[in-house]
Design a protein around this nucleic acid. Structure first.
Length: 301
DNA sequence: CACTAAACCTGGGAGC
DNA sequence: TGCTCCCAGGTTTAGT
């Protein structure tokens, strides 16, 4: 999926479109999308109805992001939590035809806003000023409705999440201590949302490259200097990616004419077999922590 | 408890 | 053209 920069870009793009707009009606076309988050989820009509009825005529009064989750706050205190997983998309189609749409998420299918809804549209929000479509080719994502703050809190959805990399609370000391208490390879720890949230396969590799550290290193062997380089790489890359609207690898992100341009700055992701932009060494590929990983054996040696 | 593999899905791309 | 096989930005769950 979209990683932190893509979800944050989506949040920023969505805000001016739907903030203080009323949800006139919601149509759930696939029950399991709104019925839970596990791999074994069974869609229930009950959940879908609760969602459809609960959000009706509510204003969207805010949009927050936590890790890779998006949270829509409603007028009556209810919350809608959206996780796009690998291929989820939220696309806003304005009633004003000339206004550009907003697409985020991740599937390499060119998607025309004019052709929405399509066969992968599973939830449709009818707004006063347009329509918000949730599309998800692989159907891994989910949209959860919490009628009030209490339900949301009790769900403990965020209880295991670590620090936001953009926040001031995420400090070198914390990061250093976390790495020292974890075992295993660096890439695994960077992907571990219990330490620092928001990194996925793209940014974990990019961070390792920028820091000059091999992703397959055991974290127990990292020096203080290397830890600091990794920390600084996270602190530089994530905001830079947000600034550029995230990585549009094969999909599209259109908001006020902008596209996600961080993919142009990728140094290693999807570049195995190509020469390193810094030293010319052919970039290597390996499976690390169960994910395809690309690195430069010279720069990160 | 820690680690790995499989599961959840569809479709694009490579190779034949 | 069409068939196979592999791969995909994430996370949960089952198995060792």
């Amino acid at each position: 999926m979209p990683e932190l920069p893509e979800v944050e870009s989506l949040r920023l793009g969505l805000l001016p479109k739907v903030l203080n707009q009323k949800i006139k009606k919601v149509e759930v076309r696939m029950l399991k999308i709104v019925s839970g988050k596990g791999t074994k989820r069974e869609g229930t009509l009950e959940k879908a109805k609760e969602f459809e009825n609960g959000v009706k005529n509510q204003l969207i009064v805010g949009i927050e992001r936590r890790a890779k989750n998006l949270v829509l706050n409603l007028d009556d205190g209810a919350k809608i939590l959206v996780h796009l997983k690998m291929t989820g998309q939220l696309v806003f189609k304005s009633k004003n035809q000339d206004e550009p749409g907003l697409i985020s998420g991740g599937h390499p299918i060119e998607l025309s806003v004019k052709e929405l809804p399509n066969k992968h549209t599973y939830v449709i929000f009818e707004m006063e000023n347009g329509t918000l479509f949730y599309n998800d080719v692989r159907q891994f994502g989910y949209i959860l409705y919490y009628p009030n703050e209490k339900c949301f809190g009790e769900s403990c959805h965020f209880k295991d999440l670590g620090y936001e990399p953009l926040s001031e609370d995420f400090t070198l000391d914390f990061f250093s201590n976390s790495l020292k208490t974890k075992k295993g390879v660096l890439k695994k720890v960077l992907l571990d949302q219990k330490v620092v949230v928001g990194l996925g396969n793209i940014y974990a590799d990019e961070v390792c490259f920028e820091a000059g550290v091999l992703p397959g290193r055991q974290v127990s062997t990292l020096t203080n200097q290397e830890i600091e380089k990794l920390f600084k790489a996270i602190k530089r890359i994530i905001p830079r990616a947000v600034e550029l609207g995230g990585s549009s690898v094969a999909n599209y992100l259109l908001a006020d004419g902008k596209r996600g341009n961080y993919a142009h700055e990728h140094k290693v992701y999807k570049k195995a077999g190509k020469p390193c932009q810094v030293c010319g060494t052919i970039l290597s590929k390996a499976e690390i922590a169960g994910r395809t990983t690309v690195f430069c054996t010279k720069c990160q040696g």
